[in-house]
């Protein structure tokens, strides 16, 4: 009966994942490998194609202008693109929040602890969720409508060119583990339920929830990847890399705030990054 409960939990989290995350790994890999029929992404590889693609970027998500009624969009391709990324990130935070709420027991935790878990977990989750969208040559953006090349991102001015390169390095390695969407759903829940986040009031119930999800993940990986040795351990090791990447990412954003005088940081992302590490 215990194993049956763990299987049911895995199914439940997979269903929630499919419900809240619009671009699954299965869809992204189909697009990246050209097996998605008519769904061929627009490729951005230089400034000219970026200009053409900007229309698509802003159709796929709420645009910068909608967030800043009354203020003009800033100059510079980098900043404009950065604002699009922020809008998508803020929307993704909402998706992750809905997913977190679907983890059994999560909404019964102290509300302040729910906030803390999201504050510290959400950027790790967002970075992890970029992996299925990436390959060594570039990344899907805008819900899979656009493929932006890694070389183009590297050609942007500093520090914008430094923002995604570590995520590519991580993703290429992480993708070799070949997790599917059902594995990812459990792994995301494990990350969210980290009992060692600073400032948590009531650690015990969080650790208990995480323990159950960990058991479910371990069992699920054994069944789903019978030939992949030590996969559970390898997956958990990635949590250390994710934490480091978040620290580096937040540092880059702080640097941007100092160097880009006109920079606007989305209020939700500001809230998350303030006093994070």
């Amino acid at each position: 009966p215990e194993a049956a409960d763990l299987r049911a939990l895995a199914r439940h989290l997979y269903e929630a994942y499919l419900k809240y995350f619009p671009l699954t790994k299965a869809k992204a890999r189909a697009i990246l490998s050209g097996k998605s029929g008519d769904n061929v992404p627009f490729v951005i590889h230089d400034i000219k194609s970026l200009m053409e693609g900007e229309q698509l970027i802003n159709n796929g998500q709420t645009s910068f202008q909608e967030h800043n009624i009354g203020s003009d969009p800033p100059d510079g391709v980098e900043l404009r693109f950065f604002y699009s990324c922020q809008s998508r990130s803020a929307e993704a935070v909402r998706e992750v929040t809905e997913f977190a709420k679907s983890i059994p027991g999560f909404v019964n935790l102290d509300l302040n602890d729910q906030v803390t878990l999201l504050k510290y977990g959400v950027i790790e989750v967002l970075i992890l969720m970029m992996s299925p969208l990436m390959n060594k040559d570039g990344t899907l953006i805008s819900y899979g409508q656009i493929f932006m090349t890694r070389e183009f991102l590297k050609s942007l001015r500093k520090p914008f060119c430094q923002m995604l390169e570590p995520k590519f390095d991580f993703s290429v390695k992480f993708n070799t583990l070949e997790l599917d969407d059902s594995d990812m759903a459990l792994f995301l829940a494990v990350i969210i339920l980290s009992g060692d986040r600073p400032g948590l009031l009531n650690v015990k119930p969080i650790e208990q929830l995480q323990e159950t999800v960990l058991h479910s993940l371990e069992l699920h990986l054994k069944i789903n990847h019978p030939d992949s040795l030590q996969l559970f351990a390898k997956v958990l090791q990635k949590m250390t890399d994710l934490r480091q990447m978040v620290t580096d990412h937040v540092q880059l954003i702080q640097l941007l705030k100092k160097t880009e005088v006109d920079m606007f940081l989305h209020p939700l992302l500001q809230e998350i990054m303030k006093d994070l590490y």
């Binding site: 998500q61 709420t62 909608e66 803020a90 929307e91 935070v93 909402r94 929040t97 809905e98 709420k101 909404v107 509300l111 302040n112 729910q114 906030v115 999201l118 504050k119 209020p267 939700l268 809230e271 998350i272 303030k274």
Partner: peptide, 20 residues
């Protein structure tokens, strides 16, 4: 609580992308 009011709002009710 004031410091994380959008997160609180997201946790307590479903907020649409426009409200974000």
């Amino acid at each position: 609580k004031e410091k994380h009011k959008i997160l609180h709002r997201l946790l307590q009710n479903s907020t649409s992308p426009v409200e974000l």
